[in-house]
Design a protein around this nucleic acid. Structure first.
Lengths: 255, 255
DNA sequence: CGTACCTTTGACGGCTGTCAAAGGAAGTGG
DNA sequence: CCACTTCCTTTGACAGCCGTCAAAGGTACG
């Protein structure tokens, strides 16, 4: 099963027909270089991308040339999902590392929604989870210290990675520069550096160029006050109704 | 045309059949009192609400009893849309003022999505706009001063109100206490008060209990660096594809 | 008429940004 | 393989925004 099917399949059970529908999106994979821009701000919304490998982010560029990172995108994520109903992009998107992307036209999402209610719901669940990530980040930004924010972001990213492909907390890849961390968390790169230094001194973790080593997971989670609830994939309340709908459709179309 | 139809109709053109489908949601309106809680945190997701009149908000309550406001909801908004695919609520919702709400079960959204692709897309557009609001608020929180944040929030709320029912910038209702403003913007009530005082001294605006009077709109917009892009309803790129789909469906079902 | 909440004001302190400068790492082209 | 450039990391000094605490007056609601 492909990464994309796996991602949407976290929310609903996919039939063979639906897998075929999705496989149409997974053609023409492309290599995207580090820092490659995927669309320009204010460009008409057209191509979206499934991120197969590598990390990406969406960015807002302010009038005074500052770069503000909106979200970090990991393998399995759809780049641009948040804006596919807009006429024009309000953000720009670019690769954080080199990676593989599969472009598709935003109109194709409409076709999928029209063709399969379960997939439509799965897409809703996907965008809702994305919004939940954003909500959590906003609340934490508003109410916690820089150190707690940084720790929380590292744990969140670890869990998101772990869902896609098993990684270990003790040591995992984390190709995000201190400057980029600052842009994501709304802190200066200087301050990020100071925090990282104290984290190392306190024996909690060490970020060493492209990866993180965690020395004291217990204290890490304690300080970050991490609550996994918002990362859940389950959709219990709706699966039942989807099953009813499919039964109804089957009997209507049946012999 | 009802408020709800008007809200979804901002994104797509509604057929008569779709209006009938939506009218099913708009039964049994209820009065909800000030501060009335609409669901408890961690409750199973069940009833959602169309807000017909009055203001509401969704809230996260932390372990230490602090209240963090996630979003402000205005007439025409769907309360709980962000969480309808989740098994359990991660937030709680409550009324800011007295108002009217129309409850419906979250499974009904699935039925609407199954019954009408244009309505499904309109719901996507709605949730995407909600996410855009959140994104904007997060970026502004991360990168702007408290004063700029407060001004920006006031303007945003004005435009959201103005979409639903024409209001004037010179004087409009704004039933949000200084404490609540603090919870929304992640500032202490004390600091909100200090900012409001300077805003009045600078001749920009005055918040007087339940409403705002704007004295100097030009300077207001200038300081807030307000950019309307993210509030747009248009969905140009997808309307065409929706029309194609409907034509296809019509010829398939036709005589 | 009393109680609870909201607003207002002052003093103080800490977290975090800005500026500046230097050393290190990595990618590029010859 | 080396020189060069660019970006990233590290460190120090200093300033300012905004939170916290405390207390008093005002307002709404029962």
């Amino acid at each position: 099963m492909s990464l994309f099917q796996q991602t949407l399949g976290r929310h609903v059970d996919l039939s063979d027909a639906e897998k075929i529908l999705l496989s149409r999106f997974e053609q023409c994979p492309q290599i995207a270089g580090k820092h490659q821009m995927l669309w320009r701000p204010r460009a008409k919304v057209g191509e979206l991308f499934i991120l197969q490998s590598g990390w990406a982010c969406s960015i807002r560029c302010t009038a005074d040339g500052e770069q503000q990172v909106i979200e970090l995108l990991l393998p399995g994520d759809i780049i641009g999902l948040r804006e596919f109903t807009f006429g024009r992009h309000v953000s720009e998107a670019s690769m954080v590392t080199r990676g593989t992307i599969q472009p598709f036209h935003h109109e194709n999402i409409v076709d999928v929604i029209a063709a399969s209610t379960p997939l439509a719901i799965a897409l809703f669940a996907t965008i809702s989870r994305q919004e939940a990530l954003l909500t959590e980040r906003m609340l934490i930004t508003l109410h916690r210290s820089a150190r707690s924010r940084l720790l929380h972001f590292m744990i969140e990213t670890f869990f998101r990675l772990d869902k896609v492909r098993h990684v270990t907390l003790a040591a995992f890849d984390f190709p995000v520069s201190q400057r980029l961390l600052g842009s994501i968390l709304g802190l200066s790169a200087v301050h990020i550096n100071r925090i990282l230094k104290t984290l190392e001194q306190d024996g909690i973790l060490k970020k060493f160029r492209g990866h993180i080593e965690v020395y004291d997971a217990k204290q890490l989670f304690e300080e970050a006050q991490f609550d996994r609830d918002y990362l859940g994939d389950e959709m219990d309340g709706l699966k039942q109704r989807l099953a009813q709908l499919q039964l109804g459709a089957a009997s209507a179309n049946g012999p």
